[in-house]
Simulated scan of single mutants.
Amino acid sequence: MRKQFLYLCLALVVTKTINAQVRGTRIGYIDMEYILQNVSDYSEAKTQLELKAEKWKLEIDTKKIEINKLKESLKAERALLTKELIDERETEINFLEKESLEYQQKRFGANGDLVNQKSVLIKPIQDQVFTAVQDIAERLKYDFIFDKTSDLTMLFAAKRFDISDQILRTLNRIEKREQLTKKQQKEAEARESKEDAIDENPALAERQKLLDEKKATREKVLEDRKLLQEQKKKEFDDKRKQILEDREAKKNGTVSANVKKEDTPTNLTGNNVATEEAKQKQADAKAKLLEDRKKVLEDRKKILEEKRKKILDDREAIKKAKEEKLKENTNNN
Rank of each mutant, 00 (worst) to 15 (best):
R293E: 11
N201E: 05
S193I: 01
S256P: 07
R300P: 02
N272M: 02
K55M: 10
L290I: 06
L51P: 01
I311Q: 04
D143A: 06
S193P: 03
Q242F: 15
D87S: 08
D199P: 03
L80T: 09
E192K: 05
K3F: 03
I303F: 10
T254D: 09
R78W: 00
L210G: 02
K52N: 13
N116M: 03
W56P: 11
P265T: 09
A205L: 14
E99S: 13
K176G: 02
L312E: 04
A158Q: 08
M1F: 05
L180M: 15
A79F: 02
T330K: 15
K186I: 02
K215R: 12
D237M: 08
E77T: 09
L74D: 00
L171A: 06
E175K: 09
F95C: 00
L268R: 12
L228I: 04
R107I: 11
Y142M: 11
K226A: 15
S119W: 05
N272Y: 02
R300C: 01
P124K: 11
D314G: 03
A20I: 02
D31F: 04
N201T: 05
K3C: 00
T181N: 13
N331K: 15
N111C: 01
A45L: 09
K16P: 00
I27Q: 06
L114V: 14
E33Q: 12
Y29L: 09
K63G: 02
S73W: 03
E235I: 13
L74S: 01
Y42S: 07
